[in-house]
Amino acid sequence: MLTIGCHLSTADGFKAMGETALSIGANTFQFFSRNPRGSRSKAVNPKDAAALVALMQANGFAPLLAHAPYTLNACSADLKVRDFAHMVLQEDLATLEKYLPGNYYTFHPGSHVGQGAEEGIRLIIEALDEALKPDQSTWVLLEAMSGKGSEVGRNFEELHAIISGVQHPQRLGVCLDTCHVYSAGYDIVNDLDGVLAQFDATIGLERLKAIHLNDSMNPISSFKDRHAVIGGGSLGLEAVVRVINHPALRGLPFFLETPNELPGYKAEIALLRERYTA
């Protein structure tokens, strides 16, 4: 069965997100761990979280994906920004472990802002070493980035350097974004097998835990992060269909981050389920 969902709002609570996911044909979903452009986190209602867990178990949901705020930059040149990143990582992971254990958490590695990729990687490792625990159940996923500006995580080598540098890599993996990797220069349209072989040789496919499934408004090697609806960008529908059906990927959860409202997500989910080879 295709495991697919989209990004949902936490405004109405955890159980409501699960019910919304079911209403659009999804069997997982992504949500922001806190205000995506700020710092505040919403207090968790334990009964609401438990109700979501029960709903997930009753309906065969795959792991959920919590997304860190965009304001998290673990390799900023500004100490206050780095301190905020350390706090968010530790608080978010503690919340997930307490209320929604066994799920996924992804974050953008950050931008080194002129310090250089090597220093950026060192600072990200420092933040992860404070946040990762040897016995945690949550998988922390580095998001593969498009390479704009001074982003870290623009290639598989940088992601590998982070993973190989932490003290507790047991629950550290990668979330591959189809728009990002294509914009970063990986040709998943014409050479998906080759890109996955490169990922396996550099990082290891066992570290790939989730896919952000998006089309791209820009061409390959544009180094721009501009998502498009499925079939409405430079990847095209057939390339996306090859991604969801690839033997190395088809067992993973796919999360749509396309520029849509719920009806659009529902239509994309239905289309992709139709094109999925059982």
Rank of each mutant, 00 (worst) to 15 (best):
Gly13Tyr: 09
Leu271Pro: 01
Asp78Asn: 14
Val152Glu: 11
Leu52Ala: 00
Ser137Arg: 15
Glu268Leu: 09
Met17Thr: 13
Leu64Arg: 12
Asn59Thr: 00
Glu268Ile: 10
Gly232Thr: 07
Tyr104Ser: 04
Val113Met: 15
Ile163Phe: 00
Ile203Trp: 05
Gly60Ala: 02
Lys42Gln: 15
Thr71Met: 14
Asp135Ile: 01
Asn214Met: 05
His7Gly: 01
Thr95Ser: 11
Leu128Asp: 12
Leu249Thr: 01
Val81Gln: 11
Ala21His: 10
Leu142Ser: 05
Thr106Val: 14
Arg34Met: 10
Gln167Arg: 15
Glu238Ile: 00
Pro63Phe: 01
Ala197Ser: 10
Ala267Thr: 09
Ser33Glu: 07
Ile4Gly: 07
Gln57Phe: 07
Ile244Glu: 02
Ala201Glu: 14
Gly194Asp: 02
Ala161Leu: 05
Asp191Ile: 11
His112Asn: 12
Ala270Leu: 05
Gly165Lys: 10
Val181Arg: 13
Leu159Lys: 06
Leu176Glu: 04
Gly236His: 05
Gly204Ser: 03
Val174Ala: 05
Ala26Trp: 00
Phe32Asp: 02
Ala248Trp: 13
Arg242Glu: 15
Ala248Met: 08
Val81Lys: 14
Ser111Glu: 13
Gly60Ser: 09
Pro259Val: 07
Tyr265Ile: 07
Asn73Lys: 13
Tyr104Lys: 06
Ile244Ala: 01
Ser216Val: 10
Phe255Thr: 00
Thr10Lys: 12
His227Phe: 01
Leu2Ala: 13
Leu159Asp: 11
Asp193Gly: 03
Ala85Tyr: 09
Ile162Ser: 06
Asp200Lys: 03
His160Asn: 12
Thr10Ser: 12
Thr3Glu: 04
Asp78Gly: 09
Gly251Ile: 08
Leu79Tyr: 03
Leu192Ala: 15
Val88His: 09
Leu142Lys: 07
Ser137Thr: 15
His227Cys: 08
Phe31Ala: 08
Leu141Glu: 01
Lys266Met: 05
Asn245Ser: 07
Pro101Asp: 11
Pro36Gly: 02
Ala77Met: 13
Gln136Ala: 04
Glu274Met: 13
Asn27Pro: 02
Asp177Arg: 03
Ala117Glu: 15
Ala58Leu: 10
Val81Trp: 04
Gly204Val: 06
Ala201Asn: 11
Glu19Thr: 12
Asn35Glu: 08
Lys47Ser: 06
Phe61Cys: 11
Ile125His: 11
Leu272Trp: 02
Gln57Ser: 15
Glu157Lys: 15
His112Phe: 02
Gly232Met: 12
Val189Pro: 04
Ala43Met: 08
Ala11Lys: 15
Pro46Val: 07
Leu52Glu: 01
Phe199His: 00
Tyr70Trp: 13
Cys6Arg: 03
Thr202Ser: 11
Arg40Glu: 06
Thr28Arg: 09
Gln115Thr: 01
